[in-house]
Computed example of a mutant assay.
Amino acid sequence: MTLGELVRLAEAGQVRALEVVSLPGSHYLVRAQLAERCLTLHDARGSSAHLRSTGEVRELLGNWPVLQKLPCTLVQHVAQDEACAVRSGPIEPLRMPFRLGAA
Rank of each mutant, 00 (worst) to 15 (best):
L41R: 13
L34G: 09
L61N: 01
Q76W: 11
L74S: 00
C38P: 01
T2M: 04
D43A: 13
T40I: 11
L74V: 04
E92H: 05
R45H: 15
L70Q: 06
A12P: 00
Q80G: 00
E92G: 05
R52H: 02
G89I: 00
M96R: 13
L100C: 07
L3E: 03
L3T: 03
E92A: 12
W64H: 13
A17S: 15
A32D: 06
R87K: 08
L18H: 08
S48V: 08
W64R: 07
C38K: 04
S47R: 15
F98D: 08
R99L: 06
D43T: 11
S88E: 00
H77I: 12
Q33M: 06
R95D: 10
E5K: 01
V7H: 01
D81R: 04
H27Y: 14
L67F: 02
S88Y: 08
E11T: 03
G89Y: 00
L9N: 02
G46Y: 11
V21K: 14
E82V: 11
H42G: 05
F98Q: 10
A102Y: 09
R31S: 10
E11F: 02
R87T: 10
V21N: 06
E82G: 09
Q80T: 10
N63Q: 11
T73W: 03
G46M: 14
R31A: 12
R87D: 11
K69A: 15
Q14K: 12
R99Y: 02
R58D: 12
T40E: 07
H50S: 08
H42V: 15
V66I: 14
G13E: 03
L100H: 00
L39M: 04
E82F: 09
C72R: 00
G62F: 11
Q68V: 01
H27P: 01
Y28T: 02
L9F: 06
V86P: 00
V78C: 08
A44R: 14
E82W: 14
T2N: 07
P65D: 07
K69G: 15
A12I: 08
C72T: 15
A85S: 04
A10I: 09
G62Q: 08
K69Q: 14
G25P: 01
L9W: 02
V30I: 09
M96G: 00
V86S: 08
S88K: 03
G4S: 12
S88L: 04
L60F: 05
L74M: 04
M1T: 07
G46I: 11
L9S: 03
T73A: 10
P97A: 13
M96P: 01
L39R: 09
S53H: 09
R52V: 06
V78D: 14
P93H: 05
Y28E: 05
R95L: 04
G4C: 05
Q33F: 02
V15S: 08
T54V: 13
A17I: 02
A32H: 03
E5H: 05
V57T: 07
L61E: 03
